[in-house]
Design a binder for these strands. Sequence first.
DNA 1: GGCATATAATTGCATTTGCAAATAACTGAC
DNA 2: GTCAGTTATTTGCAAATGCAATTATATGCC
Lengths: 152, 152
Amino acid sequence: MREDDPGLRAWSHFLGAHALALRAVEARLKAAGQPPLAWYDVLLELERADGRLRIGELGDRLVVEPYNMTRLVDRLEKEKLLRREPAEDDARVAVVTITDKGKELRRSIWPHYRRAIREVFADAITDADADAMVRAMKKVIAHLREARTDAS
Amino acid sequence: MREDDPGLRAWSHFLGAHALALRAVEARLKAAGQPPLAWYDVLLELERADGRLRIGELGDRLVVEPYNMTRLVDRLEKEKLLRREPAEDDARVAVVTITDKGKELRRSIWPHYRRAIREVFADAITDADADAMVRAMKKVIAHLREARTDAS
DNA sequence: GGCATATAATTGCATTTGCAAATAACTGAC
DNA sequence: GTCAGTTATTTGCAAATGCAATTATATGCC
């Protein structure tokens, strides 16, 4: 019953660690009166893209389905953390722009989030573990990102 | 803006890889006409525990909140994959027992699930990567499981 | 240009999750 | 034995998610 293939073993530990760690991080953010992680992700991705991004592109980068991205943007827009604007070149497209309030919120969340990551995750492993994880995770990400592109 | 602390970098890759991989695995299961992963997890955990487990214990092991565990059990019970029974010694407790149908479903899901894990995750990394991941993930899990126990 | 097909975003409806409260039963102190 | 406090599970309601359309626009082929 117990799995001995290294890949399968890694998968099950991967899921287990993720569930525990994410729950603990979200709980800490909430305890500190901060918004959910998804909000931070959106704001960070927007800042990284110099403040403007199409909704679809945002969804691709954050691994959020388009219909969920629409609604996540709805919520942040209602809080005036970002704005929707029509794209100039393509009328189907909505471009999202981060507001000053959005930038400020992101900055104010970060210390809480960073502390949570450290306490929950980073403090449990060595830097060498972390580097090894980055290498492995990058391979998985590349594997899945390229599979998404090939139309065959 | 980009993070250079190894622990924080590992965290962000960890989340990214998880989101992509889980989406891909769930999509494959669905395409193969299989039930959601959560059902498999419940059935497997029950089999590992010789078929019987309290609802709360199941929730702890699967990292599912009690109110969600109640409802997940509701759904599987409606499909006759398991049964609820009152515990003999403690009338507050509901014990869950896997049925033959449940065992059979778990066995029939596994080949699909295993193939999905391989295609999505395991094939992208080396055995050494997998072993390194297991080591790191175990540390995170131990860190969070023991934190949960200490009442201080 | 005109039409079939593809793409971006959104929406209605059903399912699932989260939160706070309710229910029921146990435990320990007195 | 009784009561205060704790624990296991469940439930009502609100919020978030998944799925299957729908809308609006763009693109390529004739």
